[in-house]
Simulated scan of single mutants.
Amino acid sequence: MKEIKSIIKAYEGIKPGTDAALATVVRVEGSSYRRTGARMLVLDDGSWTGGISGGCLEGDALKRARLAINNSRATLITYDTTEDDPHQIGVGLGCNGIIDVLFTPLDRQNKNNPVEILKLCVETSREVHILLTITHLEGEFAEVRTGNVIKYIGPESLAVFNSKEIEKKIFDKVRVQMCESKSAPAQFKSDSCQIEIFIEILPPEINVILMGHQYDVYPISRLLKELGWRVSICGDILKINPLIRSFTDEIVSNSEFPNLTIDEHTAIVLMAHDYKSDKGNLSRALLTSAPIIGMLGPKVRSEKIWKEIAEEGNALSQTDMDRIYAPVGLDIGAINPEEIALSLAAGIKAAFSKRDGRFLKLRATPIHPRI
């Protein structure tokens, strides 16, 4: 989401008379530095925002984007780093992957161009958005063309294809990707047409609520904002340095906790460094829908809190315990507040990604699923 926001900001700052195109990774086969959904805004003056690789494809992407602008037509380009072909862009990188990139010229007068649709997703409430990017068409389609992005809100969004057979196939595939919470390219055929689409599941940014006001909220807030996450601090406002506001989305008092944005993409971190406060905040956090509740401090301290809550007649269920991460963070040997912030952020990301956070060298399967 951070990259998308940067692209939107750059797009809004385009000077009159300057043309632009959006490059989007719509399919990856094998290994690549960036995955599907990576984007790059390219201006006709050669400047760009975002990225589609680790830097190896951007040079050629500038040329391709300019061609798309000049031709006023979206173009799908395949970069194949699996072949030992000296004429292939990216050869010799060792990535051993195939990457499809869609280059779409942007009509700034069209409020349904890809970036305008991304703006709509960012500006609306915290929900999972589903975007259908058309990467290839064969047949007669009056209302859509290659490069169009459709914001899917239900079966009615598919009426633009004017084919009940195709609409049903797309609908079924979208449901599968929604259930898996994964983006994927897809191909659909009928007797009269063929269409290829990139189905993108676009969740809101990770939302972190830090419940505490001690000095260690500062390095954590700075790191989380650098990641592009949403950050809120809940604590004693009188003890929070106002300068931290530049690294947060909101700062509220303990009494305003119920008014905070909390959803299935939210992590709550208890870090008041006060036993009584953390104990009370745990009970409050468990009443929310947050799937991740982190507790700073040694495990024996957390276990004592759990025991006292049980003795008070409110024993934590297994469902509650599955949401609690105590101590929060990954075991990286963190000592100072900055290192602890790194451990905490990595642990939250691992939890949301359903990973265990171990060394990648120990992973027996590819880092990302391959098609």
Results as ranks from 00 to 15, higher is better:
residue 315 A to H: 03
residue 256 E to F: 03
residue 124 T to S: 15
residue 107 D to C: 06
residue 301 R to K: 08
residue 193 C to I: 00
residue 195 I to Y: 00
residue 325 Y to N: 10
residue 34 R to M: 12
residue 304 K to P: 02
residue 246 S to D: 15
residue 252 V to I: 11
residue 350 A to E: 11
residue 113 N to F: 09
residue 337 P to V: 04
residue 332 I to W: 04
residue 348 I to R: 07
residue 43 L to A: 11
residue 101 V to C: 09
residue 223 L to I: 12
residue 185 P to Q: 01
residue 332 I to R: 11
residue 72 S to Q: 14
residue 282 L to A: 02
residue 280 G to P: 05
residue 318 Q to C: 00
residue 103 F to H: 07
residue 224 L to E: 03
residue 112 N to H: 15
residue 291 P to E: 05
residue 91 V to G: 09
residue 143 E to G: 00
residue 288 T to F: 02
residue 113 N to Q: 14
residue 233 I to E: 04
residue 102 L to S: 01
residue 315 A to W: 00
residue 109 Q to P: 07
residue 219 P to V: 06
residue 365 T to W: 06
residue 255 S to C: 07
residue 170 I to S: 05
residue 180 E to H: 11
residue 88 Q to P: 10
residue 49 T to G: 05
residue 261 T to S: 15
residue 271 M to W: 04
residue 215 Y to W: 05
residue 357 G to L: 06
residue 196 E to P: 03
residue 48 W to S: 14
residue 135 T to W: 00
residue 338 E to V: 11
residue 309 I to E: 11
residue 185 P to K: 08
residue 159 A to G: 06
residue 273 H to W: 04
residue 342 L to W: 01
residue 211 M to R: 10
residue 171 F to G: 02
residue 155 P to Q: 12
residue 150 I to F: 07
residue 87 H to E: 15
residue 86 P to W: 09
residue 178 M to S: 12
residue 111 K to R: 15
residue 3 E to P: 01
residue 213 H to D: 12
residue 230 R to Q: 14
residue 161 F to H: 01
residue 256 E to G: 03
residue 218 Y to N: 06
residue 44 D to K: 05
residue 281 N to G: 08
residue 123 E to D: 11
residue 280 G to I: 06
residue 258 P to Q: 03
residue 259 N to G: 06
residue 331 D to A: 09
residue 13 G to N: 15
residue 104 T to S: 12
residue 307 K to I: 01
residue 52 I to N: 01
residue 73 R to C: 13
residue 59 G to Q: 06
residue 175 R to W: 04
residue 240 I to G: 05
residue 232 S to I: 05
residue 326 A to F: 07
residue 369 P to I: 10
residue 188 F to A: 07
residue 256 E to S: 11
residue 183 S to L: 08
residue 338 E to D: 08
residue 289 S to K: 10
residue 161 F to G: 00
residue 201 I to Y: 13
residue 347 G to L: 12
residue 360 L to C: 09
residue 367 I to S: 12
residue 255 S to D: 15
residue 229 W to G: 01
residue 249 D to I: 13
residue 258 P to H: 07
residue 165 E to H: 10
residue 291 P to Q: 02
residue 200 E to P: 12
residue 87 H to L: 15
residue 196 E to C: 03
residue 73 R to D: 03
residue 84 D to M: 04
residue 262 I to E: 01
residue 111 K to V: 13
residue 241 N to W: 06
residue 371 I to E: 11
residue 105 P to F: 02
residue 340 I to F: 02
residue 77 I to V: 06
residue 78 T to H: 04
residue 292 I to W: 03
residue 306 W to F: 15
residue 213 H to W: 09
residue 289 S to M: 04
residue 283 S to A: 14
residue 156 E to S: 11
residue 232 S to Y: 14
residue 334 A to P: 02
residue 19 D to Q: 11
residue 367 I to N: 12
residue 140 E to K: 00
residue 244 I to V: 15
residue 310 A to K: 09
residue 300 V to P: 01
residue 326 A to I: 08
residue 340 I to L: 03
